[in-house]
């Protein structure tokens, strides 16, 4: 009679360190490999897909979902969530469009000199996000209400406020200084794409290299233990909600620039795409783990699929099916990854 050993044939003791490091690298960056494969398949099979312009479009079209996904990741890593980001983005866009837009419901406020529109509108958009973030954070941290409920309520009231403020009317005719982000390029890359890259670099650094980032991850992993270690849990969670709101406000500012105004349904549906990107990127919904590089890859993956569908003319219903399938596949991959890690490493 033979018995099978409980130890895996390639367990830690047997795997050479180099191979193990490579194995870990693949597991940590699995979503990037998936993205590379998907892009390669699209490039080989879809006519006209393989060109720089398409890849720039993918990057540029990822901007808004990508930036709100960072805010969502921060709150998820802290063990909470922020469902209000989509509506906050729309609210920030609508507020600045209503103030400075010259057409539709726009108030057409004039600033002299003209370049002032740029910083003033940006500050207002960030302030709108910060205010909603503070409200969310206060209700979650001070009153101990579940973040799901609080931010779901904000998701609803902020969208309602967009409709109420605009009366359902569109706003257009933003000053040129506010459209710089959508029109200009640096080194042939649209400014919107640069903003996306910048946000990811800054927040990846914050998460990995600063005490705030490390504490955020610790809180998501075990809030009680972190509190007992003397870390100001409440302040850090509050900061994550404020940052999430400000990032949504920033995305709204860029979105207004991109669409040259705002409509009552601006950005609708982006929350779910941001969630999909975050899950695909490997951020744990239970909190305590997740890296923004994975989220970035997740956003690019979704945008690549959308662009591929735009280019090849596939019926749009498939977009949602593919995105849903991808989220499921990501969760399965994550589970498999953990099993493989336990088994081999």
């Amino acid at each position: 009679m033979t018995t099978q050993s409980a130890t895996a044939p390639h367990s830690t003791s047997e795997m050479p360190p180099r191979r193990r490091a490579a194995f870990e690298f693949v597991l940590d960056n699995l979503v990037w490999f998936v993205l590379a494969i998907v892009l390669a398949v699209f490039s080989l099979t879809i006519p006209d897909f393989l060109q720089i312009g398409i890849f720039l479009n993918i990057l540029q079209n990822s901007t808004f979902i990508g930036i709100i996904a960072v805010g969502l990741s921060l709150t998820l890593i802290a063990g909470h969530m922020d469902l209000s980001i989509e509506s906050v983005m729309a609210l920030a866009a609508m507020v600045i469009a209503l103030m400075f837009g010259t057409g539709g419901a726009g108030g057409g406020i004039v600033l002299e000199p003209g370049w002032l529109y740029f910083p003033v509108s940006l500050l207002i958009a960030l302030a709108v996000g910060a205010i909603v973030g503070t409200v969310n954070g206060t209700l979650v941290v001070r009153l101990g209400i579940n973040a799901f409920i609080v931010t779901l309520a904000s998701y609803i009231w902020a969208r309602g406020l967009v409709v109420a403020l605009s009366g359902g009317r569109s706003v257009y005719g933003l000053p040129d200084a506010m459209r710089v982000m959508a029109v200009d390029q640096i080194l042939g890359i649209p400014l919107l794409a640069w903003m996306l890259i910048l946000v990811y670099i800054v927040f990846a650094f914050i998460l990995a290299k600063t005490p705030f980032g490390r504490h955020l991850t610790m809180i998501g992993g075990n809030e009680t233990a972190t509190y007992r270690a003397g870390i100001r849990v409440g302040a850090i969670v509050m900061a994550s909600f404020i940052l999430s709101g400000m990032l949504a406000g920033f995305a709204g500012w860029l979105l207004a620039s991109r669409t040259a105004g705002a409509t009552a349904n601006l950005g609708i549906g982006m929350l779910f795409q941001a969630f999909a990107a975050v899950v695909i990127g490997g951020v744990s919904l239970k909190g305590g783990s997740g890296r923004l590089s994975g989220v970035f890859a997740g956003v690019l993956l979704l945008s690549s699929i959308q662009t591929a569908i735009n280019v090849m003319g596939m019926p749009p219903h498939y977009t949602q099916m593919i995105q849903g399938g991808l989220v499921l596949a990501a969760v399965l991959l994550d589970t498999m990854k953990n099993t493989v890690r336990r088994y081999y490493l």
Binding site: T259, L266, G267, P316
Partner: peptide, 24 residues
């Protein structure tokens, strides 16, 4: 005629479609 829908009547989606199509 090339036809694409802007999901949820959302303006950004329409912009993205136009951008991709003008390239290809």
């Amino acid at each position: 005629i090339i036809t694409h829908p802007a999901m949820q009547w959302e303006a950004t989606n329409a912009g993205n479609i136009a951008q991709d199509q003008l390239l290809t």
